[in-house]
Design a binder for these strands. Structure first.
Lengths: 335, 335
DNA sequence: CTGAAAGCGCTTACAG
DNA sequence: CTGAAAGCGCTTACAG
């Protein structure tokens, strides 16, 4: 379609290799030649063909972003990861191939075997994620958001859900709450292997026991229309509970409406504390004290690790698993 | 990295061209040869290199998806378009390059001039969108979701916001409402050139005048935390109003909480009707009568039109502008 | 400082 | 029904 490097070479009166080197800066070009080349590039409106470059360099400068949309996940929260990944990638000179195929392993094999991407970022990684075996065969650098059971060869980033749970339980205990109710992610998230669900819950249960606090965990609803009834039933079942921990975006988003309808005042009647991102809180005007889930940081870190690995092939850096320390934002909804 | 077509040819004992033809099916291969080729492909785990294929065929089988994240837009609604586009593309054999650069025109030029994509889908198209001139120079097929002022050369899909407004006004008038309040998208959406905002509002105002109904339009809030106060102020300013039209996702999402807090019963005290997708309503458990905004249909249609054009280059089909007729779902929140 | 040439891994006229 | 060869548009040793 457009002009090729040969056109530029001809107009500038140099060889194609000289144009290529001028473009890459991989060897020095005399000032005057350089000038003629860039003039020609500008005049012709030349842009190097990505496919040809990829074929020659074996680098596409494209990253695969694999996400899955589970019906029991709350879509609004996902976009924050996507945005963080995309923007970081661009800043590092990479584009993003977005893959949402239902068959994640097959999709991964496809984009990787065909050389469409230099590396991949996996979102929504499960404890025993079926994409990981494929990834290991593919011999491509990869970073994940989410902690799998086997982190071998991966750069892994996730929130430290255990620490988050302990911090939240301690926070409530220090305020003197004797009985706490926890709403966890929906049951399908547990059975599917969404490890963050039990990492948080189990740590909360343990910490509560250690601190001598009564804590009961209940599954949140996957079906939004049932959230009000379920929250109501949970609160009814624990009339003595003075604090509620919400580890479920869908429930958190509806909580003001649900508690408002029940006439429950926060923190007067009930202390509420949750786990989500500041951006999420802003989008839904959630007034609760929360632990930041840090999608921006996690997405950005994953991409930066991946890019670093791509830009330093065979480098000395061991794959890293980083669990981000929780950060509690006190909005005054507990006391 | 992996095996190439030459490896397959050697193992199968045929020429590279025969392997290529076996793969593409563009000429007939004897049964036995075919068998040997596919055995070799399977044994070697061969997948054709996408870059090399793109270079030879001048088709990448990748579509660019350009979206912009404006801070005054409600992120949760965007994902539905992305999913529809991505899934439709895959079903048609295309992958998606997701581009979210702040500088849309530059990003478009980049992916298009470098031949990274065969065509593009533009989301959030403005009335006078700065990406369109770039697109026209690029000579690539493109489809949009959103109606620009100049549709020349584009396949354009959008909801018929004018018809939607008229249908909603008529619906309320038929129920006997003499005074209606409309909450529009935030003011920045208008000034930026988000044409759907005024297409809906102006049609609503006109239709109300035509029908002898009093209708007042107010800007919705871009800042979620101010939505409750703004909705309250709007209702206070129109104590006689018996019906509320909401054309703003952020406001709609918070409406149950806001109206609940004010003690406003729907439809007892106030009839409420809105404009969003069924999926959106489900995510936020919104119980209101609404006109379907059809993100799935629009995203899918745009991709299908684009793919059709790519698969039939130089075809006879004129570019099409399709405004999808509104469909009202009665959930009983008006009377 | 610069160029001629090989090579990246495919596809597709051209020939038989 | 099949193969040898040119070509897609780059990059990069190799040579000077």
């Amino acid at each position: 379609m457009g002009p090729t490097i040969a056109d530029v070479a001809r107009v500038a009166g140099v060889s194609r290799s000289t144009v290529s080197y001028a473009l890459s800066g991989k060897r020095s070009i005399s000032g005057e030649t350089r000038q003629r080349i860039f003039d020609a590039i500008r005049d012709l409106g030349f842009t190097a063909n990505a496919g040809a470059r990829a074929l020659a360099t074996r680098r596409t400068m494209v990253l695969g972003l694999l996400m899955q949309f589970e019906p029991d996940e709350f879509a609004p929260a996902m976009l924050q990861y996507v945005m963080a990944v995309t923007e970081t990638a661009r800043r590092k000179g990479y584009d993003i191939l977005l893959v949402t195929d239902h068959d994640g392993p097959a999709a991964l094999r496809r984009i990787t075997d065909s050389g469409m991407v230099d590396g991949v970022v996996l979102l929504d990684v499960l404890h025993d994620d079926p994409r990981l075996p494929v990834l290991r065969e593919a011999h491509r650098p990869a970073a994940t958001v989410g902690l799998p059971a086997d982190t071998e060869g991966l750069d892994v980033y996730d929130l430290d859900f255990g620490a988050a749970a302990r911090q939240i339980v301690d926070h409530l205990r220090d305020l003197g709450h004797p009985e706490i109710v926890l709403i966890t992610p929906p049951r399908p998230v547990f059975s599917r292997g969404g490890a963050y669900s039990w990492r948080f819950r189990d740590a909360a249960v343990e910490q509560a026991a250690r601190r001598g606090v009564r804590l009961t965990a209940h599954y949140g609803e996957a079906d939004p229309s049932r959230i009000p009834a379920t929250v109501g039933a949970v609160l009814d079942a624990h009339p003595q509970a003075t604090a509620l921990i919400v580890h479920n975006d869908a429930t958190a988003a509806m909580l003001p409406a649900v508690l408002g309808a029940r006439g429950v005042a926060v923190p007067g009647d009930l202390s509420v504390i949750s786990l989500y991102s500041a951006d999420f809180a802003r989008t839904f005007s959630l007034p609760y004290t929360f632990v930041e889930s840090a999608p921006g940081l996690l997405g950005r870190s994953a991409v930066e690790a991946l890019v670093h690995r791509l830009d330093h092939p065979g480098g000395p850096d061991r794959p890293v698993t980083r669990l981000v320390a929780p950060h509690l934002i006190d909005r005054g909804s507990t006391r």
